[in-house]
Computed example of a mutant assay.
Amino acid sequence: MSASACSPAVLSGRLRECDRLLPRPRTVPSSSLPTVPWAEFCDPAGPWLSRCAAEWQERGGFRHQRAGIVLVAFRFGWLACCATVPEHYLGAAVPSLRDLHVAVTAEGRLSALRPSGAEAGRTPQEWWRDLAEAFEPLTEALHALGGPCPESHEYWGNPVGSVGTVLWRLQRAGMPGDAIATARELLAATGREHLLDITPTRNPWPRRTTCCQWWRAGGGYCDECVLWNSASRVSG
């Protein structure tokens, strides 16, 4: 259930607040980094995707190659949800991820999404179909680089889990609307309900059921991490 209807000026203000709260397309100025077509970025034989995985690997100091690969899926899933879920929640036009370009740093980091300006559709099913169609070639390419199979929950748990994280952050910031109901609505549209646990009486109420792997870098745990009760988290 999206937020109640409001004037265009109020809606624009709420979207600007989302830009402040989350890494969204307008967060990184369009002129500051070069952009690459999404299909070109996802080419496993090209320079972009392998460099992005290597950048995660180097930044995290990982021994296992799979960690850096899975974190590419995490980054895109997070950016894609940040770019589309607030619009769905607030009742605005949802940007389509078709004909997408991405901004990439010199080090290879996937920095921002550059949607084309087209709309994905208003229903949860249209939103998920659009996001999944963008995500699928990434999972296939990461598999080609040595990662898990394209259907692995290690990939798909990232965009699905990020739905809850985005809405929880908007709720925590005081955005109007029923964030939990929206999370359930969007989660049902994914057909992968087992990848996100929603418990309204818990704080935070969303919890991933898969791991993004970043904890292995020694950076701690996200509030909604599946490892919420791990021995190292409890003792830390």
Rank of each mutant, 00 (worst) to 15 (best):
L113E: 09
W128T: 05
S162W: 10
S152A: 13
G117Y: 07
T209H: 01
G218K: 12
S230N: 06
E107D: 14
Y155I: 01
R114F: 02
R184L: 07
V166I: 12
S162G: 13
P137A: 09
R122I: 14
E140F: 02
R172V: 03
A173S: 15
V226P: 01
R216H: 14
A120Y: 08
D223R: 14
G121Q: 12
E193P: 00
C225S: 03
I198L: 15
T209Q: 09
T201G: 15
D130C: 13
R169V: 04
P124V: 13
D197L: 13
E133W: 06
R169I: 05
T165M: 15
A141L: 01
E119W: 01
S230C: 11
P159G: 12
T190S: 12
L113G: 10
A217T: 13
V166T: 13
L227D: 03
R192N: 06
D130N: 13
W205A: 10
L131Y: 00
A189H: 03
L195A: 06
S162M: 13
R114E: 10
A144R: 01
C149N: 10
G164P: 07
E151C: 06
S116I: 05
L113H: 11
R207E: 10
I180H: 00
D223C: 11
G121P: 12
D223W: 15
M175E: 07
E185D: 15
S111Y: 04
I198S: 01
Y155N: 00
I198Q: 01
A120C: 15
V163G: 05
L113V: 12
T105Q: 09
G157H: 05
M175T: 07
A134E: 03
W128E: 05
A112Y: 08
W205V: 11
W215N: 13
L145I: 00
A179R: 00
A144K: 00
R114W: 04
E154F: 12
S230L: 05
I198G: 00
G108N: 10
R109I: 02
D130E: 08
L167T: 11
G117N: 06
Y155M: 02
R184H: 06
R208Q: 08
L187A: 02
W128F: 11
S111H: 10
P206F: 09
A118Y: 12
T105Y: 02
S232A: 15
L110C: 09
C222H: 05
A134S: 15
R109W: 14
C211D: 07
P148V: 04
R208G: 04
A179E: 03
I180C: 02
C211Q: 06
V163F: 10
R202K: 14
L186W: 04
E126C: 05
L113S: 10
S111W: 04
H194R: 14
V160K: 07
P204R: 11
A231P: 07
C149W: 11
I180G: 00
G161R: 03
C211M: 09
L195K: 03
T201M: 14
T105N: 02
T209P: 01
I180S: 00
W215G: 09
E224M: 08
N229D: 14
G219C: 14
